[in-house]
Nucleic acid binder design. Structure first.
Lengths: 126, 126
DNA sequence: CTAAGTGCAAAATATTTGCACGATC
DNA sequence: GATCGTGCAAATATTTTGCACTTAG
């Protein structure tokens, strides 16, 4: 019951935007990046496509930073560092974790390791 | 420059509510729990106090599940399991992770390990 | 008395959705 | 030409805030 996915330049642009950045951006950031090149792009289209990418696993969601969902098209195993001050998300090499026995609560399909702190730029300012 | 913290029955009730549950609840849940006992409680008060607890480290935030911030008054080191289907958050024993060298990106002050999957209740239904 | 706490309603934010139209296959 | 994709605006949903009033110390 797989719905046909049609070709759409805007969808391609949104995915390409995510794949070519290390910003781990929010929907609004993607929109702001593409809007100058695609003047008739709508923010709703960005949201709709991000939701679809998320659903079929094309991109992953890092989490909600300062009220905004942040996306990552890099699906290789790695961890993230999130700056509590400015909200920047940076990649870190994968941190291996022992998968605990989760049979008591449910079936685990993924695991995320996230480090929080203050990034070097913010350390200089504060 | 520590601001004086006055005593308030409502604040106590909110914290006590968080400390006496394993629900890892959202603001709305805390409000719904307390409202019958404290009829003149306002949702804004719950939000205000949760924000304050969060700021002074009295409680931690697990993350945003289905658009709602989830809180945990258990500050001991442990991990969480989040059900993608129903949003339930369960405790797991602490998973030790090697702290990677984060000097390239910033100074890390905490680390969270979260497992995602489908809880046993939802597995039975789906 | 002074500053903090609160209710209420309005505001601010982020995201989703209904609908009509345009694009793709 | 049937269905998917999109713009636009309106609707949701969550969280924050301004203001007047109350309360603790």
């Amino acid at each position: 019951m797989e719905r046909a996915r049609r070709h759409s330049p805007k969808r391609d642009a949104i995915l390409e935007c995510l794949r070519s950045t290390h910003e781990h951006p929010a929907a609004e950031w993607v929109y702001a990046q593409l809007k100058p090149m695609i003047p008739d792009l709508s923010l709703a289209t960005v949201y709709r496509n991000l939701a679809q990418f998320r659903k079929d696993g094309t991109v992953q969601v890092i989490g909600n930073v300062d009220g905004e969902e942040r996306y990552d098209a890099d699906l290789s195993p790695h961890s993230h560092f999130i700056c509590r001050t400015c909200g920047k998300v940076a990649d870190l090499p994968f941190s291996p974790v022992d998968m605990p026995d989760t049979s008591g609560v449910g079936r685990t399909d993924s695991c995320s390791v996230t480090y929080y702190g203050c990034c070097n730029e913010c350390l200089q300012i504060c």
